[in-house]
């Protein structure tokens, strides 16, 4: 034991010399707000801050926005379509490459497995709320110069330099669409398993998004794999790096692990019910159901 005061040591010394702390000698900290009571008499009473006569004292204040008769400002302009169709617009909250590299450096995310939205949400770092039109991860280029990890990542939106940064390090990137129901499930899989429902099928992208996800340039999950290989090669030439050969990589299987377009989780098929308490999976036997889920 040295002379350095450690956590609580000084207080221990003080407490040992002071009387026993009980219910009778506790006090709140200085400056804590007190509940304001209604004033009575000369102490805030009488007119209670309302002044004399007028609408203020008579509790007959004009409604906010009222302009004593003329057409008020908030009613002058008929149409202000600032939020026109806002409920149909998708949002992709950003996740930077710097954040991703920090997560990998601090061992908060496992690089030995494919990274998808579920893995990112499980770290607790990414703020994602499907109920307010968030549709997934937008991988941004902040920290692109120092990104050195080899990952298999699946995001919902990204840009060309980011794809180049990931492929340069020998990794793979895919952009995939998830419908809102699937997003809720991905965000909190355990909560979904508690419901006892079968894993649903993922829905295909809407009309305005399908072009993005079928384009090999965006590494869309619905694009032709051959076209994607070609685009990888083209991008390497554009950004001036030698494209690492995936086939010779010892992690080839992990880097090429992809989900079926109707699949939500890696390795778990739609139609299955997961009982994570008893660690069993319930699978339907009915042929019609099986056909439906395999479509």
């Amino acid at each position: 034991m040295g002379l350095k005061p450690k956590m609580g040591d000084l207080t221990v010394q003080m407490l040992r010399a002071l009387p026993r702390i009980g219910l009778y000698n506790l006090k709140p900290i200085l400056g804590m707000p007190k509940l304001s009571k209604r004033g009575r008499g000369q102490h805030g009473g009488d007119k209670h801050g309302c002044g004399n006569k007028g609408s203020g004292q008579r509790q007959n204040i004009m409604r906010p926005g009222y302009e004593t008769g003329n057409q008020p400002f908030y009613l002058l302009f008929g149409n202000e379509p600032y939020y026109y169709r806002h409920h149909l617009r998708r949002q992709y909250p950003p996740l930077s490459l710097l954040q991703l590299q920090t997560l990998i450096d601090t061992d908060r995310i496992d690089v030995d497995r494919p990274i998808d939205l579920a893995a990112i949400c499980a770290t607790g770092v990414y703020r994602f709320f499907p109920n307010i039109k968030h549709f997934g991860i937008n991988l941004t280029d902040e920290g692109i110069d120092n990104f050195k990890a080899k990952v298999n990542i699946e995001v919902q939106w990204t840009s060309e330099p980011v794809i180049a940064a990931i492929e340069r390090n020998g990794g793979t990137i895919t952009t995939a669409y998830y419908d809102p129901h699937s997003l809720f499930i991905l965000k909190d899989p355990l909560k979904f398993f508690e419901r006892g429902e079968a894993i649903p099928r993922r829905m295909i992208p809407p009309q305005d998004a399908i072009m993005f996800y079928t384009d090999a340039k965006n590494r869309g999950y619905l694009a032709d794999p051959e076209k994607i290989s070609w685009e990888r090669f083209v991008l390497a030439q554009k950004y001036g790096y030698t494209l690492p050969k995936l086939e010779e990589d010892p992690d080839y299987e992990m880097l090429t692990e992809r989900k079926d377009p109707r699949q939500i989780f890696y390795g778990l098929e739609p139609g299955w019910v997961i009982n994570h308490h008893e660690k069993v999976i319930l699978k339907p036997k009915d042929n019609e159901l099986r056909e439906y889920y395999q479509q």
Binding site: A118, P189, Y266, G267, I274, V280, I281, P284, K285, D286
Partner: peptide
Amino acid sequence: TDYEITQNPEEWKYVERLFVKPRI
């Protein structure tokens, strides 16, 4: 509907992937 109960450790690994770590 009729169902079967399976306990496949290979498939269960994919479920365990989804569990959140209790602490960092």
